[in-house]
Write a protein that binds this DNA or RNA. Structure first.
Length: 430
DNA sequence: TCTGGGGTCCTAGGACCC
DNA sequence: TCTGGGGTCCTAGGACCC
């Protein structure tokens, strides 16, 4: 049985390459793509990189430079990039038995079944095929683990476009590689590793894992193991459902009035609920955040963020927006110039599999009425079908009914429960 | 004057329950 | 002044990624 091998396919300068597909005149000239509000540079063609334009640089700082050097500048078009991404992924999926889409412009393929000497040839032709069918240039790196494939991909980018990193070549590839270039080691960790005399990938590979784990966390330990060739991040074939969903924007003009902040929060809420429904999901909690500009040194910084439980899991725009607005009003402090606000939906689940939820109005969890209700539901749906959740929302306790029975019809008012006010009954369906 | 948006995972600490 | 232990859930915050 041959050893496991991963190929990482990474689209070169993805957003800039997408723009080029639709305008060949952009070939060979410097191209950059800007973030929302045309704030920062988020993609650069090779020519733009050669001019020294850095990733993430604020556009206003380089605008005159771009004019002088005839750099073609684009606002981002995420609809286009998403569409191009799907085209690339389709080509890859038709070639590989197992694949994981890692981001909009990257995918891991399992290439364990190839002989090492075939790989170079096979992947070179895959690369040509992706380019021919989609117009997008890609780089391909192969390694024994995902982390090593990432290193191989960097080598591919600087060379022939395809790099197969064999075990024998690993030490050489890691000797002079700055530790910050290793996947999973960011700015903070690089700085924290420096006093431990860990500055290169090979020094990290040879470091004491127990010590690193105590000093940092399991993520760092896993990275070290991956550098040693121990596969810790296996391929996840099915893309897992998203667990959180965020909608946020920087303000074009700084916001000082509550009314403007409320307008933004309700717009973001509506958009978030829309995205939720598009993915057939519902959310349990929401977070609202707002903050002043971290770059503004002239005023006091202010940042506020808080999470609340929604009354029940939902994708309902009005409920989400209403809850978010209440929270936003609580968090808003006058006298600040807000630069950004957003909403984060947390605890997402599949709407089709969602548990119908009944709300009972009672103060007493142990009340006879509720116990009767549980008995009745258990009798109807089988023992254990109903469980009592200990979550208290205001004065209401929540009963959950497992959705084993698709023929769920029981209504609250049919239950032998005495309530002083009409209970709300929610059945969440697909 | 102007500095993105959207995710993941891990950990710590407090609340709460039995 | 002493006054349990263990488990889980929730929230906040910090690191990373593209």
């Amino acid at each position: 049985m041959s050893e496991r091998r991963y190929a990482l396919i990474d689209c070169n300068n993805f957003y800039a390459s997408c723009e080029r597909v639709f305008d060949p005149r952009l070939l060979g000239v410097p191209v950059i793509v800007l973030s929302n509000n045309d704030g920062c540079v988020v993609a650069r063609s090779a020519e733009a990189k050669a001019l020294g334009i850095k990733m993430g640089v604020p556009f206003f700082q380089i605008e005159p430079f771009c004019k002088r050097n005839s750099v073609r500048v684009f606002s981002s078009n995420y609809t286009l990039y998403g569409d191009m991404s799907r085209r690339v992924m389709r080509v890859l999926a038709s070639w590989a038995p197992a694949m994981e889409v890692y981001s909009i412009d990257e995918a891991f393929l399992d290439v364990s079944h190839f002989e090492e000497d075939q790989l170079q040839h096979e992947l070179t032709s895959l690369r040509a095929r992706v380019h021919m069918w989609t117009g997008i240039p890609v780089s391909i790196g192969v390694g024994r683990t995902k982390t090593l494939a990432k290193i191989a991909n960097d080598i591919a980018k600087k060379g022939a476009g395809v790099a197969v990193l064999t075990q024998a070549q690993e030490p050489h590839a890691m000797t002079d590689l700055p530790v910050g270039d290793v996947w999973g080691i960011g700015r903070r960790l690089t700085a924290a590793l420096e006093p431990l005399d860990i500055a290169t990938a090979s020094q990290l590979r040879d470091a004491d894992t127990r010590q690193l784990r105590e000093r940092f966390n399991v993520v760092v330990e896993r990275t070290v193991m991956e550098l040693r060739g121990v596969d810790c991040m296996t391929l996840t074939d099915v893309t897992p459902a998203r667990k959180t969903l965020m909608v946020s924007r920087s303000f074009g003009d700084k916001v000082t009035a509550l009314a403007d902040l409320e307008a933004a929060v309700s717009t973001h809420s509506a958009r978030a609920a829309e995205k939720l429904r598009a993915g057939r999901q519902i959310a349990e909690h929401l977070e609202v955040f707002m903050h002043t500009s971290p770059f503004d040194r002239t005023t006091r910084p202010y940042t506020a963020r808080a999470t609340v439980a929604l009354p029940h899991a939902t994708a309902d725009t009005r409920l989400i927006a209403g809850t978010a607005l209440q929270l936003a009003r609580r968090l808003f402090k006058p006298g600040h110039r807000y630069a950004k606000a957003g909403i984060l939906l947390v605890g997402l689940s599949d709407a089709a599999k969602a548990t119908p939820t009944l709300f009972a109005s009672t103060d007493d969890r142990r009340s006879r009425a509720l116990m009767n209700a549980l008995d009745k539901l258990n009798a109807d749906y089988g023992r254990g079908a109903v469980r009592f959740a200990s979550t208290k929302m205001g004065k209401a306790w929540r009963i959950r009914v497992d959705r084993r029975s698709r023929s769920y019809t029981t209504r609250w008012d049919e239950l032998p429960v005495a309530t002083t006010e009409p209970p709300r009954v929610r059945t969440i369906t697909a």
